[in-house]
Design a protein around this nucleic acid. Structure first.
Length: 426
RNA sequence: GGGAGGAUACCAAAGUGGCCAACUGGGGCGGACUGUAAAUCCGCUGGCAUUGCCUUCGUAGGUUCGAAUCCUACUCCUCCCA
């Protein structure tokens, strides 16, 4: 199902709702039909991991590659040191060079999962530190800066929206660097297209302008932005109460990642399938029918969760996530073997206790199920605590009162979905 | 540089000497219902403790039997004038 070859990439993107703005729709469509094109998209190291929002653009690069084009994934080792004002209401705090460098490496690794480095149209990962890092001030101001008009820069949304509150020269200059990236990639790899999120429009057009100015003959380069993915209620997709949904397995476990997608609203799931999977539009249409006729089966959600988790974390992690889900929501935890418990609870908070007489109230705190004894008691009184499939009702319960799995494990459930593992070693 | 106002728990916002661990709304968390849903309803939302204690209302002091509330200094924020 994935790995399909799209004859008309532009049409496919359009049908998936992935096109927001384009510098010249007709010309770009024509160019794409003429043959392979090199395109790029940048990712700045503003955190130690990409999140699910970045997936939209990363997967778009892959869509282009599947259609026979050559994607470049740019990691902003240099621009990450400056800070993009786009879409921000206030100045960013600068990170140290060491931090930026280590984040850059992490992003590189994550991005490489989504694109193919072999074959006829191999992708490439580039780091703009390689050409910006060595740029000297005179070159920057004289050769590059001369092509920018401050009047123009002030008009860009990313800058104008900040004029009231204030913006530093550093962030103000950001668009020049990003434009220079596009220019360098055009020069080095004949990169003709830059793709980015909708907030990148200003930076992207600045880049196409720069290339035109610096080129002797008339050239055509294109910019394309993708929409911000929102839910039906208008809020941004990918935000949870506990923060962003990360692609790094250490920050958001594969199980949590899988669950996040499994719980997508009926109203949103079809859109998400279009944006986050490589399923054909026909396959997605079939799933849309399922949502309409048998929403309670949640076939679409299941498919979405499986496809994306496999894409991001691989088949093994997906299998674990599914197994954990089965044990938690369908199976009886008591039936699990010690081996299975260890496997299933790899991604779940756990603690080891050494004292059999420990009150359950304290155990809940140790595993992280409750913040204080008061809260722990409240959970028990409300009937929110289940240990090894048995509801606990007495606040006085001690660990030794409870039946253990495989003689050593307590699987604690709080509420409907939160699980904690407690290992007893006396 | 001058003037006015403000800082309360996750957020918003009451309270202006004891009845304040602090109204209310949002959020969050639990329960019922359910499709691991939406909507709805109910409960909880500083800590410890078997009705008592401890720490909280920008920071540091002071007044008082007693302060989130009054006084002093400081820090930060907003607005107005220059």
């Amino acid at each position: 199902m994935s790995g399909e070859f799209f004859m008309d990439i532009f049409q496919d993107l359009q049908a998936r709702g992935l096109i927001y703005q384009c510098t010249d729709t007709e010309a770009l469509q024509k160019r794409l039909n003429q043959g392979p094109i090199t395109l790029y998209c940048g990712f700045d190291p503003t955190a130690d991991s990409l999140h699910i929002g970045h997936l939209v653009t990363a997967l778009t690069l892959r869509r282009f590659q599947l259609a026979g084009h050559r994607p470049l994934a740019l990691v902003g080792g240099a621009t990450g040191m400056i800070g993009d004002p786009s879409g921000r209401t206030s100045e960013r705090t600068l990170n140290s060079p060491e931090v930026v460098a280590s984040w850059t490496e992490k992003l590189k690794k994550q991005l490489s999962r989504f694109i193919e480095f072999d074959g006829d149209n191999p992708a490439r990962i580039v780091n703009n530190y390689d050409w910006i890092g060595s740029l000297d001030v005179i070159t920057f101001l004289r050769d590059i800066g001369k092509n920018f008009s401050v009047n123009n820069m002030l008009a860009k949304e990313s800058v104008s929206s900040r004029l009231e509150k204030g913006i530093s020269f550093t962030e103000f200059s950001y668009m020049i660097l990003q434009s220079y990236d596009f220019y360098k990639l055009y020069e080095m790899y004949q990169c003709e297209l830059q793709v980015g999120g909708s907030d990148q429009w200003g930076n992207i057009t600045a880049g196409t302008d720069l290339i035109r100015r610096l080129s002797q003959e008339k050239v055509n380069v294109y910019g394309l932005t993708l929409p911000l993915i929102t839910k039906s209620d208008g809020t941004k997709f990918g935000k949870t109460a506990s923060g962003a949904v990360w692609l790094d397995a250490d920050k958001t476990s594969p199980y949590a990642f899988y669950q996040f997608l499994l719980n997508v609203d009926d109203q949103d799931v079809v859109n998400m399938l279009k944006v986050f999977t490589f399923l054909s539009l026909e396959e997605i249409e079939e799933l849309a029918q399922e949502v309409a006729t048998q929403p309670e089966k949640r076939v679409a959600q299941r498919t979405l969760a499986e496809e994306v988790t496999r894409l991001v974390h691989g088949p093994e992690a997906l299998k674990r996530a599914v197994n954990i889900t089965k044990a938690f929501f369908q199976g009886e935890i008591k039936q699990l073997s010690e081996q299975e418990i260890k496997e299933a609870f790899r991604d779940v908070p756990s603690a080891t206790i050494t004292e059999a007489s420990l009150p359950l109230v304290d155990t809940l705190i140790q595993v992280g199920a409750a913040k204080s004894k008061r809260e722990a008691r409240e959970f028990i009184r409300n009937g929110a605590i289940t240990v090894n499939d048995r509801k606990v009702t007495s606040v006085e319960t001690k660990v030794s009162d409870l039946e253990q799995i495989a003689g050593a494990y307590l699987v604690i459930r709080r509420g409907k979905k939160k699980y904690y593992l407690c290992e007893l070693s006396v």
